[in-house]
Amino acid sequence: MRAVDTAFNYDRFAGHRVLRRVAGPLLGEFEVSTKVGYFPDGHSLDPARLNQAVAESADSLGRTPDTVLLHNPEHDPDGLADACESLAACVRGGLCRAWGIATWDPRPLVHAAGEVLVRPDVVMVRAGLSVSEPVLYAGEQFTTMLGADDVWGMAPFAGNPSDPVWSKVDATVFLQPGQQATPVQARLAAAFALPAVSRVAVGTSCPGHLDELAAAVRLAPSMEVIGEYRELLRAQAHGEGDLRAAHPG
Rank of each mutant, 00 (worst) to 15 (best):
V202H: 01
E231H: 12
L95G: 02
Q236P: 03
F30P: 03
R107E: 13
A215Y: 07
P161V: 05
G79C: 10
I101V: 14
L95Q: 14
L45R: 04
G100P: 07
T172Q: 06
G153Y: 01
V118I: 10
G153R: 00
R2N: 15
L61P: 04
A189P: 06
V202A: 05
G28S: 11
R230M: 06
Q236R: 13
L61I: 09
A196Q: 15
K35C: 00
E212R: 14
A48Q: 14
L26K: 09
G203N: 05
T6F: 00
V200W: 01
A23Q: 04
L194T: 09
R63V: 07
A88Y: 13
L136M: 04
R49I: 03
A196P: 11
L45A: 11
R218S: 15
T103K: 00
G114A: 04
Y38K: 09
A98Y: 06
D11W: 07
C84Q: 04
E74R: 02
A186H: 01
A214T: 06
A98F: 07
L210W: 13
E31Y: 08
P221K: 03
A81M: 01
G28D: 11
V4W: 10
A190P: 12
S130M: 05
P25L: 11
E56G: 12
G203L: 03
D242R: 04
V173I: 06
A53Q: 01
V131N: 01
L95T: 09
G178Q: 07
S205L: 06
E31S: 09
A215C: 14
E240K: 12
D59Y: 12
E31I: 10
A98N: 10
T67L: 15
H71G: 03
G147H: 01
A201M: 02
M145G: 06
A181L: 11
G62H: 02
L50Y: 00
D149L: 06
Q52M: 10
P108L: 08
K35W: 00
V18A: 11
M145W: 09
G94D: 08
L117M: 11
Q141V: 13
R21W: 08
T6V: 04
P106L: 01
G241F: 03
H75K: 09
A7M: 02
P25W: 04
L219R: 05
H43R: 15
N51Y: 15
C90F: 06
V36G: 02
S205Q: 05
A81W: 00
D82A: 15
E115R: 15
D211L: 12
A201S: 10
P73S: 06
D163V: 03
T67S: 10
H238A: 12
G93A: 14
G62N: 08
G42A: 03
D78Y: 05
L45S: 07
A171I: 09
T67E: 10
A186Y: 02
E212M: 09
G159C: 08
E29K: 11
